[in-house]
Design a protein around this nucleic acid. Structure first.
Lengths: 244, 244
DNA sequence: GCCGATTTGTCCGTATGTATC
DNA sequence: CGATACATACGGACAAATCGG
């Protein structure tokens, strides 16, 4: 997989920051000093840095330099951020993840499903209901809808390991972006049962609803993830854009 | 305020997309056709487009074009996304926002406060507790800590209208980025009282904890926002970055 | 399947502006 | 004021993917 130059530089700088190679709160070496090191143009280096800005790793200050504002993440609870499969985030969180399939159904979207998911009426879908556990503790109850035409050949076996791995490695699909909405909802009896919750303790949970697109511009997945509140932790770095 | 060229183009395209000028799900005019229209270089146009990608408005497909994937947002509940003051988001949500000050205290960070906020022990701070209401309904209970040296001259009057407006317009501070963590927590008696909640209904709420930085690289604000669960809605567009 | 036209992706070099020191 | 550092903008070159003939 031939990575692009700016991505290579981005990853190298990211790693150096994470490993503490650059002092916390201080300025990184200037662009002009990094250019000969990486043997690239100024544009390419700046592109790498702008990704670090997006990640909240550094902050650029005109006339001064690029400040390292990286803070190591608290790893005590299950942290989510970008688009990740459960398998990937389990690995990142250094935990052992297991998945249990509750339902695996093929269906055709009717008015109600269409309303709920955004898929057109008549679309052929897979509906999968799964529980993801970390270190044996059930954390997430997932309701997935996949567009059959974009993700053909799904099986319960694949759903039990990693759907994204299958889509990307076997079907060579490129997953691009995901529109997500986070809300807090009352727990249902299903939640209570499979997430082993007690209504007398928490009576709600964190819900992430997402519409995910591939590189053909097709919305191929609709998912509702219901998270145990006491382990849910969503991380984010937001950039301020002056009003207007 | 002289806006940059790419930002002007970005806003123009964004507005055109929102107003439905480009058909939903279809390709936008090609870069080469837009360049003469905006009288800019290819790089500048591409920069504008890449912001639209980040916003989840469009998706670029190599060899094909730029697809409009904008979907109008449901405006029934109070939606948050980027870094916004309550005043700004009230306006964006087309509602009337009011703010009530519960506490306005100047304090010096001790070990406990330092642990909680990330400010160093001994830092001079403003601590402000506020309730934000929309259309008369209390939605958010805010605990703000501002670094006095970076945000001098705060008053209850300012806190009642808009602190960000004061910081940006009067102090000419540039707010840059905010590291946020979203969790779900049990409601406290304070929440119950000021957000007019009933423990027998929802017994938890959405909490956003944020560390906010200005253009001097100073973390000048720590805030914990506690949101009524039934009105809370956080929106996001995530981009997939291949694992590794 | 091949080829050429179109379209986006990457990369380079350069010039100029603006903020900091 | 000059030197340094990041920000914006331009133009050009080539690569890679898509699509139609």
């Amino acid at each position: 997989m031939p990575k692009s130059k700016y991505e290579t530089i981005y990853k190298d700088l990211k790693l150096k920051i994470e490993s503490g190679e650059f002092p916390q709160g201080e300025l990184l070496p200037s662009e002009n000093s990094l250019i000969p090191i990486y043997g690239c143009s100024r544009n390419t280096l700046r592109r790498a840095i702008s990704r670090l800005v997006t990640d909240g790793y550094v902050q650029t200050i005109q006339g001064k330099g690029v400040r390292n504002i990286f803070i190591p993440v608290d790893q005590t609870s299950y942290t989510i951020g970008g688009i990740e499969s459960f398998k990937e985030s389990s690995i990142r969180n250094r935990k052992v993840g297991t998945t249990r399939i509750l339902q695996f159904i093929e269906l055709t979207a009717d008015e109600r499903v269409s309303q709920r998911t955004g898929f057109p009426v008549g679309a052929e879908l897979y509906y999968i209901q799964r529980v993801h556990s970390l270190d044996g503790k059930p954390l997430i109850l997932n309701h997935n809808y996949f567009l059959k035409s974009a993700a053909p050949g799904l099986t319960p076996e694949i759903a039990a390991s990693s759907i994204y791995e299958y889509l990307e490695n076997s079907l060579h699909m490129t997953i691009v972006n995901s529109k997500r909405v986070m809300t807090v909802e009352k727990i249902t009896q299903i939640d209570e049962k499979y997430l082993e919750l007690d209504v007398n303790d928490y009576n709600c949970l964190a819900v992430i609803t997402s519409h995910t697109y591939n590189s053909d511009g097709v919305m191929f997945e609709f998912t509702q993830s219901r998270h145990r509140p006491d382990y849910f932790r969503f991380q984010d770095n937001a950039l301020r854009r002056p009003a207007g």
